[in-house]
Design a protein around this nucleic acid. Structure first.
Ligand SMILES: [Mn+2]
Ligand SMILES: [Mn+2]
Ligand SMILES: [Zn+2]
Ligand SMILES: [Zn+2]
Lengths: 140, 140
DNA sequence: GAAGATATCGCAACTCCCTGCAATAGCGCC
DNA sequence: GGCGCTATTGCAGGGAGTTGCGATATCTTC
């Protein structure tokens, strides 16, 4: 078990809660939430405190096992790090979500590095805006 | 009064709370928060409910008088719309905030329009990443 | 296998923001 | 200037996420 070793090397411990959360992540859908995980575990008969879930997601993120994204102003979405990283476009009118390959965002990242020495993570927050359909409706 | 007219034309009303919030926004610093506004008004002897502040900021945003931005995962920041719109780079290590002109972000917006028909608002969420200093420290 | 050190847990309390609802106060009209 | 319609307010309650603290479980060491 790779993660278990990484944990212990940093003085961490493998608890039952941690193992359960890792299991849940393994089975979870693409963009999962802390609440999803808690409900999935509750359905299997395990009651894990919400703060434990949040704290563990943070630890797992530190270990590079998961990442998080903000698609809207509300809930945080979590992904396993082994999934392909990608950006998101979210329409503020209809809520439609489009995934975009990092390649489409790379030129901006490069520019920000050149101009500001800033290593941008353009997948962390979705790009908000208005999708094609909604724009057509508005202008008609 | 421009805003007052815009309000009433849409069937809105100019309440004391609304006027106080507009005053507070006029005096507020560059990136203000709902809590800033509430405290500023409290200091002048007016107690306005938080929900009233949030609801009014939303209305004023609908009228195009203010916009909001997310610099970190916590508090929402509000700007008067008459200020020049700009993007933000926020370092996830040290928290440093850098403003960037929209011109630097425009090429990506153009690309997203061409490829996805998506009218991106690249000022809505800050671009998170790691600033030059922090990157140097990490790699040393 | 037990003992000690401490990472982690559950709980309670807190922050920011949103929403439903009954009471209130602006506004348009006469 | 008064009346009625209804937009807006304050309040209470809720959802997501964070934090401090005392109790517990895991890991290390013997
Ligand atoms: Mn927003
Ligand atoms: Mn985040
Ligand atoms: Zn849309
Ligand atoms: Zn930094």
């Amino acid at each position: 078990m790779k993660i278990e070793d990484a944990l212990r090397q940093r003085g961490g411990r493998m608890t039952m809660q941690r193992r359960l959360i890792l299991d849940a992540l393994a089975r979870a859908r693409h963009h999962t939430t802390a609440d999803d995980i808690q409900r999935q575990l509750r359905a299997k008969g395990f009651e894990i405190d919400a703060s434990t879930i949040y704290r563990n997601l943070e630890v797992l993120e530190g270990l590079g096992h998961v990442t998080h994204t903000h698609l809207d102003d509300r809930v945080t979405r979590w992904h396993r790090a082994d999934e392909e990283r990608h950006g998101h476009l979210v329409c503020t009118v209809c809520g439609a979500e489009t995934e975009v390959p990092m390649a489409a965002l790379r030129p901006l990242a490069r520019r920000l590095m050149e101009r500001y020495g800033f290593a941008a993570d353009l997948a962390h927050a979705a790009v908000s805006g208005i999708c094609e359909q909604c724009r057509v409706v508005q202008s008609s």
